[in-house]
Design a protein around this nucleic acid. Structure first.
Length: 863
RNA sequence: GGGUGCGUAGCUCAGGGGGAGAGCGCUUCCCUCACGAGGAAGAGGCCGCAGGUUCGAUUCCUGCCGCACCCACCA
């Protein structure tokens, strides 16, 4: 055995992962209760970021913990083809490297290019996940565009279509003029922004006067087909049914009445643009108005826009406002603020358009998915996300699933070129079933990337085949993800799970935070504020990075990540390293033996160890990663290193050497097992050096609490010792006493055991301790209140310091006494407080009084 | 318009009905034979504001103020 004095992550991280994989530890052993997790598949758009690192670390902690607990553990890895995101990334790449647009390549060649990209990034992502130490089963790795997953996608599409749950229809959809595709409502981000409200005159037909409308988008007037007012609005009652002339366009359009119009807003009269506003679309359908689409795919004015044709929507607005003003139609402009939709991938302003698209009918599918969460068959942790999920589900709208992209699952629908028949089929059809024509054209569109993700928990296990994996490992145990994709993904998985497996996809949903930079901003490429987890692992070690993420994962808000955190836990890793090193250096002559004849310190540390096992286990069961991590940290550093190892330095040199060695090994063995889910590399490396090491800590058993070893008395007594030692050090430091001053300690109160006494002497470095029933008379010259009973002999020291201390303490005690007296004279306290509370107050009071008396006496003496 | 989370040490954050904790930073001391990436001691807090419940609130409840975020067809 040869450990250096420093923890060197680079030397230990490389070797272990390969060995674990080689030994097949990450492949389920096939027996025992299953514990199954499917990874939220990272997009193949680039490197994984800190959010992935958090997500993967938390899953790995759970998986490694459960594996040690003996579960048949399976964690399925994979990647997502990420339709729009990837297509955009490759388009950018194409533009930058070849200066070409995807249209210049054509669909087939472009898709081939994306496949090359996908292979490259999948490999990189795989490596990054390995670097993180994720104990995923690589033999079961999946990709959303795999053959198997693709057939799952087709089957789901076809079945939903046959059930009438997928339909094609002409509705108002969200169009991204940059990505040139429609988006689902969830993919549109609404951003509050400042805008202008334009008041425009629409002159009445055949008579004087006008009706004024207010609009934020004057350019859409080119597509107006009516003006609407509220039927109850007295101001406009006599105008309903009349016609106005659409300015600039010179077209007559009717004035109609519809409840939708809010008389309070603007002028109480609304221009109706059925093709470019969702509300107007509904109004138009109710009133049978005509539709005039005025934009092309790039949101430029099309042939319906007359002289404005060819202008993009912003230019068109400018021009139209100018023209309105020039012709006296513009009444006024107001500043308002309102929410505008933007594309979640490219941030372009969304253009609402009426288009023929494919939809999933969500309401009928949502029923079971709602019930499951309402009844906690699927449980959200933290629970508050349940409300968020349910609120969305109660109001769920149909899901637009077709995308005008090239990268993704092509919609399994064909149209007969001869008779126009629509053929929806899992297999590519050879001919039209209606007319027999062999001339068929497949729908050009692909499916929303989230359509395939929705099937992930069962498609990755082999569905639609009836595989043994599916039989054994579905439903999965827990889904770990961020709250940003509850609607996109979690909700839809629950829906699809019930629809196609007649069973929930997972039992628990653990929702973790989002990682932001230290100022609370989103980490993004454009801000350049991202902290790369792989870079961090090189700088600080992967284990410290993982531990940091775990301890920051308190259930609640976002994580504001400051790189300096990693340093704290790198130090912790170093501490663990060196504590183990200390033990190993002192193991000469070690042999395993029963834990008996234990010293006070032994009993104490073993008791504390049991408590830690308990806390960590419970916390992991409750997904309280931060509690678990902190508990290990505090036990190991503040108790084991700071106190037990210090005490071991004496006992290792005496008769109890072998016992101490055994306790050291026992504590390290258990601690490293507890640590393993958090810091797998370090834990393995050190554990392998212990005399009790096994094949691998990865497959070692999780520590069980040993009730027999818990010793409350020893625990309390040792706490008293720590208190006394701290008190002595405190006085020493404040009085600037040299360490080896030959101090004599008087402890007022019951004497402690000889063992405790010698521990104190060693730990506080004092020569003698005397237990006395009351204060020593003249020579006692210092007092410290932390302990309330201890005097240190400091004959010859400067007395003014001590007098000041005494005065301060007397003041503090007097306050305490007054407070307790007040409490005890309070009638309501006496009549309402518990027996114990009253007793406690009495105790504190008498204690305070006794101490005050003693202190005043000492003060007298000193003076 | 509805909803959620957060306001605790200089900074970043845990915690939680009974005179508040950590890391970093700061001050003083220590080259003690595992670790100076260390050890010892310390300074530093109206626990956002105002009410309520309670013997007792930083903690629970209500309202408010600030900061984030989510949802919503506010032309």
């Amino acid at each position: 055995m040869d450990l250096g004095t420093r923890y060197t992550p680079e030397q230990i991280e490389k070797k272990w992962y390969a060995r674990w994989v080689e030994k097949g530890y990450f492949t389920p052993k096939g027996s025992g209760r299953p514990f199954v997790v499917v990874i939220p598949p990272p997009n193949i758009t680039g490197r994984i970021h800190m959010g992935h690192a958090l997500n993967i670390t938390l899953q790995d902690i759970l998986v490694r913990y459960k594996r040690m607990c003996g579960f048949d553990t399976l964690w399925v890895p994979g990647e997502d083809h990420a339709g729009i995101a990837t297509q955009n990334a490759v388009e950018r790449f194409l533009e930058e490297t070849q200066g070409k647009r995807r249209e210049e390549l054509g669909r087939d060649r472009f898709v081939e290019l994306v496949w090359q990209w996908a292979r490259k990034y999948r490999t990189e992502i795989r490596q990054q996940i390995e670097t993180l130490g994720a104990s995923v089963d690589w033999t079961r790795e999946r990709f959303t565009l795999d053959e198997g997953l693709s057939s799952a996608v087709r089957k789901v599409f076809v079945e939903l279509y046959r059930k009438g749950l997928i339909y094609k229809g002409k509705y108002m959809v969200n169009w991204c003029p940059r990505c040139k595709t429609v988006l689902s409502d969830e993919e549109v981000e609404h951003e509050e922004s400042k805008a202008k409200l334009y008041y425009v005159k629409y002159p009445l037909c055949g008579e004087d006067g006008y009706i004024a409308v207010a609009t934020t988008r004057p350019e859409t007037m080119l597509g107006d087909t009516a003006v609407a007012v509220n039927p109850k609005d007295e101001r406009y009652k006599q105008l309903v049914g009349k016609r106005v002339v659409l300015p600039l366009v010179n077209k007559e359009i009717p004035i109609i009445a519809d409840e939708y119009v809010d008389p309070e807003f603007g002028t109480g009269a609304v221009k109706i643009t059925p093709s470019h506003d969702p509300n107007d679309f509904e109004v138009a359908k109710r009133h049978n108005l005509s539709f005039v689409d005025i934009f092309d795919d790039e949101a430029k004015v099309n042939e319906n826009g007359g002289v404005y044709r060819g202008l993009d929507r912003y230019k068109a607005r400018e021009k139209i406002v100018q023209d309105l003003e020039a012709n006296g139609y513009l009444l006024k402009i107001e500043d308002i603020s309102h929410a505008v939709g933007h594309c979640y991938r490219c941030e372009s302003m969304i253009e609402p358009r009426v288009m023929d698209q494919w939809f999933v009918s969500m309401k009928p599918l949502a029923k079971k998915a709602i019930e499951a969460v309402e009844t906690d068959q699927v449980r959200f942790v933290p629970a508050r996300w349940k409300k968020v999920y349910l609120h969305w589900m109660y109001n769920v709208r149909d899901w637009c699933i077709s995308r005008q992209l090239w990268w993704g699952h092509r919609i399994p629908v064909w149209y007969c070129d001869s008779c126009g028949e629509t053929i929806v089929s899992e297999k590519d059809p050879a001919q039209c079933p209606k007319c027999g024509s062999k001339s068929l054209t497949q729908d050009e569109d692909v499916l929303d990337t989230w359509f395939s993700s929705a099937l992930w928990p069962f498609s990755t296990l082999g569905w639609p085949e009836k595989t043994t994996d599916l039989e054994k490992y579905y439903p999965t145990s827990v889904l770990v993800t961020g709250f940003d994709i509850i609607f996109f993904w979690v909700a839809r998985m629950i829906v699809m799970g019930y629809e196609f497996m007649q069973e929930k996809p997972f039992t628990d949903v653990y929702i973790h935070q989002l990682i932001r930079d230290k100022y609370g901003r989103k980490m993004s490429k454009s801000l350049g504020n991202g902290i790369d987890p792989i870079d961090m692992s090189v700088k600080y070690g992967m284990d410290p990075v993982r531990f940091t993420l775990a301890i920051l994962a308190a259930q609640g808000s976002d994580i504001k990540l400051d790189e300096r955190y990693f340093d704290t836990y790198r130090k912790f890793a170093n501490k663990i390293w060196n504590a183990t090193r200390f033990a190993l250096i002192n193991l000469e002559g070690y042999e395993e033996k029963q834990l008996e004849g234990l010293s006070l310190a032994d009993k104490w540390i073993l008791t504390r160890l049991q408590r830690t096992v308990n806390t960590v286990t419970q916390a992991l069961e409750d997904y309280e990663f931060n509690v678990a991590a902190r508990s290990i940290y505090e036990f190991f550093w503040n108790e084991f290193c700071d106190w037990y190892i210090e005490s071991a330095k004496i006992t290792l040199n005496g008769e109890a050497r072998l016992t101490t060695q055994n306790v050291l090994v026992r504590v390290l063995d258990t601690s490293l097992r507890l640590l393993h889910p958090f810091m797998p590399f370090l834990a393995e490396e050190l554990w392998q050096n212990l005399p009790v090491a096994g094949e691998s800590i990865t497959v070692a058993s999780w520590p069980k609490i040993d009730e027999m070893i818990i010793d409350d008395t020893a625990e309390k007594e040792f706490e008293k010792i720590m208190q006394i030692v701290r008190g002595i050090r405190n006085v020493r430091a404040e009085l600037n006493m040299p360490i080896k001053s030959g101090s004599k300690i008087y402890v007022v109160g019951q004497s402690l055991s000889k063992e405790a006494e010698s521990l104190i002497k060693h730990l506080a470095n004092v020569d003698s301790i005397e237990f006395v029933s009351k204060k020593p008379t003249s020579s006692a010259t210092a007092y410290f209140d932390e302990l309330q009973h201890i005097y240190v002999d400091t004959t010859g020291m400067d007395l003014t310091v001590e007098i000041n201390r005494l005065e301060k303490n007397i003041e503090k005690l007097s306050k305490e006494r007054e407070w307790q007296m007040k409490k005890l004279s309070d009638k309501s306290f006496l009549s309402h407080a518990s027996q114990e509370a009253v007793e406690e107050a009495r105790g504190k009071l008498s204690q305070a009084e006794a101490r005050l008396k003693v202190l005043r006496q000492i003060l007298e003496d000193l003076r």
